[in-house]
Design a protein around this nucleic acid. Structure first.
Lengths: 190, 190
DNA sequence: TCTAAAAATTGACTTGGGTCAAGTATCAGT
DNA sequence: ACTGATACTTGACCCAAGTCAATTTTTAGA
């Protein structure tokens, strides 16, 4: 639980009793690589804090999986739009590594919102971050060539790169696996 | 002001006194087609409700303007990320038509947030909508061909289409003006 | 009602990155 | 250690959409 506690400490207005409010409603879940945290079309009834592990969001288009984001340890995991509206999710969430989660149910979140503005603030910040990373990814895809997207991902995600299968990375970068393979070959031979 | 009032009425929990809280801090601005509501790099210090008119968001990339969204009457207008963090905006906002706005300053919003949870809720909903439309646009661009993007935009924005210069539409659809022109020609001759 | 500038169109040509198909390498389960 | 399945690579070919350059059309001021 310590990783979750120190995560919360970074937000302004955090007090130790906030964690006391939270811990009774937390549930623990382990999940193995390849298994699903959420299926496409299911309602996301819990939000998770990733204690350890790695996940991806994806959806199906023309029978192909399109990976839209990676979620690493010490961040939140949810189909945000599904969780907020408690409606079917347009994306699936799958574990890439064996992972450990702390779960908070939708109902528990609503109670936290009522009990203390700290949690409202956390929710608002989370939603703003979702918006920002979505806009950033959009510009990243639009403004850079396939090669530059790969190079920039490498540069800004050194630690993540070797944990992600290339096919998922290709899809995230909106490059076909074949093209990514060729890009990597060209870069390797300088 | 009536359009603003009936806009607010659609949100759950609205009471007439909410408009009484709001109206003292509203300012009115008129802006002519082509003029800027916000320059790229400026801090967005006001959020606006569009009484009438039409705007676009855009940024410069490789010397070219990339239009990222259109904002019509009876919706809010702001560089959302800049307004929230009061930091320089990564986009510019320009009027496409002569327009009339109601302005609310950043400070006034903070005071509304404190005075009544209705405004908090409105802020949260606005931020969620920004996130949703950003994700939707991303998928719209990724999943559809240039021709399908044009056709779908036409179908779901009948009223807007003839108010938007084709060059801005092309950029929004991530198509070059030349290609959009060819797509339109092909469709016209069935 | 001119007229210069901006917007839109058209033609000729190019290209980044996709698809399809056939390998080769890697991995997980027995 | 074997083995079937999955992941990755490579080659050959193709095409949707971009670029560049030249008109034509539309628009907004004087």
């Amino acid at each position: 639980m310590d990783s979750f506690k120190s995560f919360l400490q970074q937000f302004p207005g955090y007090r130790p009793d906030h964690f006391e409010q939270l811990s009774p409603v937390l549930k623990i879940q382990s999940i193995r690589a390849g298994e699903y945290f959420l299926g496409q079309g299911k309602v996301c009834k819990q939000i998770a804090f990733i204690e350890e592990g790695l996940f991806r969001h994806f959806y199906l288009h023309d029978g192909k999986e399109v990976t839209t984001c990676f979620c690493r340890e010490h961040t939140f995991l949810a189909s945000y739009s599904s969780f907020l509206s408690q409606s079917p999710s347009d994306i699936a969430i799958q574990a890439i590594e064996n992972s450990k989660l702390f779960l908070i149910s939708f109902e528990a979140i609503q109670n936290l919102y009522k009990s203390d503005p700290f949690w409202q603030q956390l929710g608002r910040i989370a939603s703003e971050n979702e918006f920002l990373s979505s806009s950033n990814h959009q510009r990243f895809i639009h403004d850079l060539s396939a090669t530059d997207r790969y190079l920039q991902f490498l540069a800004s995600n050194k630690g993540l790169f070797n944990r992600i299968p290339l096919q998922y990375l290709a899809s995230y970068l909106q490059i076909s696996p074949e093209t990514l393979s060729r890009i990597r070959k060209k870069i390797a031979q300088n």
